[in-house]
Design a binder for these strands. Structure first.
Lengths: 246, 246
DNA sequence: CGTCCCCTTGAATGAAGTCAATACGCGTGG
DNA sequence: CCACGCGTATTGACTTCATTCAAGGGGACG
């Protein structure tokens, strides 16, 4: 089972065997495991390394003084937190585990070696970073403009496609290990309303969500009611011209 | 009057005279002017260059099929659109002018020269990029968790501080050239409700907004009611240790 | 078997949206 | 200089989507 980052980056470009080896090695040193709910890094702390998710789900979140809490991103296997984060003195948000989570912690040095002299990797990591930013923008649109049904549907579409990019889906289903409270914190809705919204999606036959598993019987239909346009995920192998020849 | 990008980057690090010269020159070739409402680049187009705002305000926005429109970022003088945007094949959003807008268009080559062999500039540009991402995250929190009053107040705080970083404020005021419709599109509120919210901020004595000018008589008070914490703007000169000695 | 966490449902409330009419301010042209 | 027109701002009345409060149910695990 290859490193999920490798799988994902190959959505964008074909890596050489050497590139893959380098990434595999980087992702196998300094592996840490976190329990659900545990912070990987907290707001205010100094960022020390770039985290790469190997398995499990995590999230970024920010908390207001009065306790309100917003999840601003989900981390899935293969996801990397911001490149060059160590330029900043202190984290302005926290990262925590939603499930049991294993991450590889890439030191600044490892990371610089990774980018140095490996143009294909560098470009692929840039792509990764730009897609993450695009996702963040799309969340702004999602929360700002879509109603509850569209909002939850849109998020499910996004997560499904992102999981698919790392091979973590079956035909039309995937593991879905997070709670309705997590969905609420991510969509800016109340838990109660997320619950009602999921009911509605279920009754419309758009999703089957049970236990920790999600199925989407008719993905195009879910995309449609959610006004979901996948262009922001940039899965179109822009980097083709740089493909390794091997 | 120096290039506003230089002024802003010096919030983070002191640039050498040479660094400043390079940035000044980069910002003076390929200058274009746009009329209010005009698109600088539209969703679907191929990004060709990195845009640097010299004067005026612009925005990023995304539009849903049914016409709903969300502004996901404001561009102020000194702002740069995403580094390395040309890695992506097509824009997933549009950029347009809100006022008369002048931008310098940096070609891929200019841009690579800028980063190449100028570690202080490179680091400062990275800082710029990371701050932009942090702003995007904060907007997610703002729209997801804050009520109308907090949301509008928070946005005004952010804009004021960002303008101040490029020297575009007086003691407690600044030009504020955008419409209530723009504020509505950025906050995810209706125009009517933005209007009422501004009234409320006015009657509470927190803002004086008239014509195209904004004053904030008591900034700490506005920050407080908006639950505004400026840490995400990372104005704390992290890069001090890299300061040019001159 | 009990406890805890998560999910579910109902009823009442409330914040923000919509619709519609009116007012203001500024630039253009008579 | 004033009248017209257009974009922007303002206000009121009504509606709606989502929140809040509160209670109950179900499953996993010690």
């Amino acid at each position: 089972m290859p490193n999920p980052l490798v799988r994902k980056l190959e959505q964008f470009t074909h890596l050489s065997a050497e590139d893959r080896g380098i990434l595999e090695r980087a992702g196998s040193v300094q592996v840490r495991r976190y329990a659900p709910g545990e912070d990987v890094i907290a707001e205010g702390e100094a960022p020390r390394e770039v985290n790469l998710v190997l398995s499990g789900w995590g999230c970024r979140y920010k908390q207001l003084e009065d306790g309100r809490r917003q999840i601003t991103a989900f981390f899935l296997p293969g996801d990397l937190c911001d490149l060059n984060i160590f330029i900043l003195r202190a984290m302005d948000h926290s990262v925590s585990a939603l499930t049991t989570l294993t991450v590889a912690q890439l030191t600044r040095e490892t990371f610089e070696q990774l980018m140095d002299g490996h143009p294909r990797i560098t470009q692929a990591l840039w792509w990764e970073a730009l897609v993450n930013i695009a996702i963040q923008r799309e969340w702004t649109v999602n929360i700002g403009q879509r109603n509850a049904l569209e909002r939850v549907g849109h998020l499910l579409c996004e997560l499904f496609i992102r999981l698919r990019a790392t091979g973590l889906t079956s035909e039309n289903g995937c593991d879905f290990p997070i709670t309705q409270a997590d969905l609420a914190a991510a969509t800016g809705l109340s838990v109660v309303h997320v619950n009602r919204t999921l009911q509605e999606l279920r009754h419309a036959g758009l999703i089957v969500l049970h236990g920790k598993h999600l199925s989407i019987p008719d993905f195009p239909a879910l995309m449609k009611v959610s006004l979901f346009n996948p262009n922001y995920l940039h899965l179109d192998r822009v980097g083709r011209h740089m493909d390794a020849v091997e």
